[in-house]
Every structure is written in C-alpha cells, then in structure tokens.
C-alpha cells in the first residue's frame, strides 16, 4: 500500500491542476459513488478514475491498487450478501442460509462503491506533493498551517510506518517467529507484540520530526509565508465543470 500513496513524478494535466481542484475533484468523485444507486454509474466512476490515472502515467499503479481493493471488496461482498434477507431467493444453502436478489444487488453496489470511492483520493495523492496540499489549504481555505502540516505529515508517515512494520516483521521472522505461517489467526496473534516496537519507533520519528521542524522556525510561519502561489486557471475550471457533470449524472441517472 505504501507505493500507492507516494508521489509520482510527471507533467500531465492532472499534475498541473491546482491542488485544491484535485482535492475537490476527488471529494466529488467519492460523493458521486454514494449519491447514485446504479451499478453502471459506480462502474463509470471506476473507469473515469482509471482514465485519469492513465493520463497521469500511473495506470499500472492504479490497476495494482484496484486489485487490492477488489480483494477487500469481495470479502465485504461475501460478508454482506448473507445478511440481507429481503427480496427473492436466488440461491439456497444449508443451515437456512440463502442469497436474495436484493442482497446480491446491495452487496455488489456496496463493494463497487468501496473500490470507486477510495481510488480518487489515492490517485490525487499520487499526483500532488504533500507540501502543495498543506500550502494550498493554508493559502486558499485559510486553515492554520499547523493543522494542514499535521494532516499532510500524517499521510506522509503512512508509507514510512508501513515500511517500518515490514522491517520489524522481517527482523522477528529472522528470530524464529513464524510470520511465514499460512494460519491467518496465528499470524494476527504473532503480530500483536510487534505493535510495541512500531509504536516506539513511530513516537521517536514523530518527536524527531517535530523537534527538527521547531528548530527551523515552524512556529514563526504565517499564512502569508510560503514560496509558491496557487492560482486557478482554465484547466481548473474545465476540471470543475467535468466534476459537476459527474455529480449531476450520479444524481439524475
């Protein structure tokens, strides 16, 4: 998952959009998945996400990400489909377990929504530098820089913690801990003690970053500070019109 959130170099239209436009677009695409009750619209949003990703040169990454989400979505589908008891029975299983048409439709829509709604933010993060997100939120939305920086730092730390956890698991495997077991529950039980080193290393890293920022005058920064300015252009207007069209389609279709 760490690779999905890291910045991907490029000079595509998506890269050049104002970071705020990209944030709005991803929020709107996410919202459109929940405004519609049609599978076709949600599938349309997934295809649109993949097209955006292709235009930014990150289709391979998005497809890999989709595979991960689809696995999770399938798990949720299986969990959901047996709990909806309304509608006509389309499949009967032993122990009074059955699948209804409404259950199948609801669960499939739910699973598709999961895939469609999580992709836009991941794509947006992969084509926008974290520093640009914190700067634009401070400049345009007037959110105090302290909070925007905290938000983007939290996102930035996700892949770092993920790598750290992988390193810890590797070190413990080398000590004889059976992380290479195929038993899922045993693996979870073995993972629990590792939360201690992860927590400690995380706190150490965060403390180090905080001290480092403090020593470089972090608290002196105001909204006017900041080297870059973020103007809206024609392509931003175009992107927002397209976003509005997607939302309208989600509501009207």
């Amino acid at each position: 998952m760490s690779g999905f959130l890291s910045y991907m170099n490029g000079d595509s239209i998506l890269h050049r959009l104002n970071p705020l436009t990209k944030l709005l677009m991803s929020a709107a695409l996410c919202a459109s998945c929940f405004l519609t009750h049609r599978h076709s619209v949600v599938i349309g949003v997934i295809v649109f996400n993949l097209c955006m990703s292709y235009s930014a040169g990150g289709l391979k990454r998005s497809l890999a990400m989709s595979v991960s989400f689809i696995k999770l979505a399938l798990l949720l589908f299986v969990l959901q489909v047996f709990f909806v008891r309304e509608g006509n029975i389309i499949l009967t299983l032993p122990l009074n377990i059955y699948i209804t048409d409404k259950g199948a439709l609801f669960s499939s829509l739910f699973s598709l929504r999961l895939v469609a709604a999580t992709m836009p933010l991941a794509i947006m993060l992969s084509v926008t530098r974290m520093s640009d997100i914190s700067n634009v939120l401070a400049q345009k939305l007037r959110i105090p820089y302290k909070y925007t920086f905290a938000l983007t730092t939290a996102i930035r730390f996700i892949p770092i913690f993920s790598e750290e956890m992988a390193g810890i698991a590797e070190a413990q495997t080398a000590r004889g801990v059976e992380f290479d077991t195929k038993n899922f529950f045993k693996k979870i039980r073995l993972l629990l003690p590792l939360c201690v080193p992860l927590l400690i290393s995380s706190v150490r890293k965060i403390e180090g970053s905080a001290i480092s920022a403090e020593l470089r005058g972090f608290n002196l920064r105001t909204r006017e500070c900041g080297y870059k300015t973020y103007r809206f252009g024609l392509r931003d207007a175009g992107a927002l019109v397209l976003t509005a069209a997607i939302i309208a389609a989600a509501v009207l279709i």
Partner: peptide, 17 residues
C-alpha cells in the same frame, strides 16, 4: 532461524519486550 542468527543494523526492529 533455529540455526541462523541475524543481527540487524537497527536493533529497535528486533526488540519488542
């Protein structure tokens, strides 16, 4: 791992107690 010991560069990854 029963026969091969591995000391990592960063000891913090190995410590958990």
């Amino acid at each position: 791992a029963r026969n091969v010991g591995f000391l990592f560069q960063n000891p913090d990854r190995q410590l958990c107690q």
